[in-house]
Design a binder for these strands. Sequence first.
DNA 1: GTGAAAGCGCTAACAT
DNA 2: ATGTTAGCGCTTTCAC
Lengths: 340, 340
Amino acid sequence: MKKKTTIYDIAKELNITVSTVSRALSGFPAISDATKKAVIETAKKLNYSPNRLASALKSGKTHIIGVIVPSVQAHFFASIIHSIEEGLKDSGYRIILYQSNESLENEINGVRTLLEAQVDGIMASLSLETEDVSHFAEIVKQNKPLVLFDRVNPVLKVPTVTLDDFGAGYLATQHLIDQGYKKIAFITTIHQIKIFNDRLKGYKAALEENNLPILEEHIIYGGLSIKDGRFGAGKLMRCTEKPDAIIAGDDFTALGAIKKLKEIDATPPQIGVIGFANEAFSAYITPNLSTIDQHANQMGSECAKMFLKMIAQENPYQNIDHVVLNPTVVERQSTDKLPC
Amino acid sequence: MKKKTTIYDIAKELNITVSTVSRALSGFPAISDATKKAVIETAKKLNYSPNRLASALKSGKTHIIGVIVPSVQAHFFASIIHSIEEGLKDSGYRIILYQSNESLENEINGVRTLLEAQVDGIMASLSLETEDVSHFAEIVKQNKPLVLFDRVNPVLKVPTVTLDDFGAGYLATQHLIDQGYKKIAFITTIHQIKIFNDRLKGYKAALEENNLPILEEHIIYGGLSIKDGRFGAGKLMRCTEKPDAIIAGDDFTALGAIKKLKEIDATPPQIGVIGFANEAFSAYITPNLSTIDQHANQMGSECAKMFLKMIAQENPYQNIDHVVLNPTVVERQSTDKLPC
DNA sequence: GTGAAAGCGCTAACAT
DNA sequence: ATGTTAGCGCTTTCAC
């Protein structure tokens, strides 16, 4: 197998030096048009392809950024990745992907691996297991941009892009109240994650403002999945004070709740159900699922924008921005309460 | 900002040379246990983190492989990526992601970018626009593993992992016939993609074997999306010979068809509908969508396995395997024909 | 078992 | 406008 052509080959061919070739190729201004043209032609002729590795080793910039998400199989994260890539493409940055699968250990490995790969920065959304975030400190210490999105942790003094989660919880609750529901339950995760705690606070605030009681038996702490949704709904329906509506931690959990409610003849909107995330399926199940849109694509492009801004500064952390997106309600059948 | 520690710092600290440090760190056998231990301890003490870039430049191995897919937003591809990463993780390979967004131009850029990043190999599924595949030739020329999956092209003499698409088309058709449907239509893409052509062939073969006529007006060539599904179903229902079942190119198209059929009071399974891919929503729409499962996760792990096998050989292309997975029918309500 | 030294392909002072 | 040269951090052949 013949060796790959390098700038040395081009230089030899044209009887000039590598520095000239390097300059011609990288659009350095003080280079004669003639040499530039000759270099580019010869490069094409010899089928030259730059070795970004060598350039990265020398310059300290790989133009690759690491993205850590729980799993690309969740549509929400897939959408975010999609729009991060989109937002970064024009500036020549590429993404290297790492999935934590909701495991802290994987997340720690991810940070290490990405740093060893000399990425120019990292974007991450925390795993459900992640409470201690010290493994992210090294990124900041190296003065490389770290942007946290969606599942963030305030202990880390870094820029973030999040949804207004308090607002989201409030909005979901207020929507149900506006529709005429009065005894609203809440299914959430047992993990101490800021965004889920915030939503719970929003829920409680909305109830209070509307002079509705907050019942502890109406708050279910468990997992988030179709199975957990079934289980949670079942448990709620056996309460002494049976709720007339359920807010589920995500659309999958909401789906499970709906399935259970259908079985016991309490099909929504008889009992109202609303989820979070606006997953692909939510518009198409029966009844259609009302949900809080988390604006994944917008979140992704904000992350990209934030990163580009940080990288342009000599000190990426000179001012730490927090972009907060506004949640919106997607009203569908599952909360369309019939007049009594 | 203090400089990062390198093996030179470790060497200096211990009064040995870098070669010894390098050997100790990389598990070279002929190294005394004492030095090895000292090196590892000092590395930890100095907070050493290897620069994989330098090592890659020297060794020619980045341990990064590029993956090109149309879009991670499609659940099918997200699942494949998930299991590729899973299957590769233990052997220390990482994934760098590139999305073509169904554009040939992006795909060409992707190949170039990944090669410039010196990836150790590439896995790809072709964009809908891709008919000419010459941009992939360079990968093979560099003797780097290229594995094509799902959307492949036989012009490229490389290993592939695919579904038996002829079988999938046949299976979908035979399933409908078994259920009692007799006038079966087919919505597919206008693009000349092998897998879609193969499915069409399978469809025709099944009809022939069952002595059913193949009607050109029952084959709709268009796009694949919810919108296209609505459109296709509408067109089919205006045929002179109205079909009693529809095979749609993917689950989204099937979903569109179902929506249209519900509107015109021909709700499945009255008119049967089956899709491809077993998307996340398919089990939860009403009626539940029957579909052909394409075994995304299995496909991903086969890709990983194939890659590892190729990389282990001195010549990755010494024998070119083609793994073909068997499609399976997921029977749900949308094809559950009622007795007449 | 360890050391010396060359070099992977490129960039960027510094020089002319 | 172009050439010279010294590395970036690591691996690896060849010594001893």
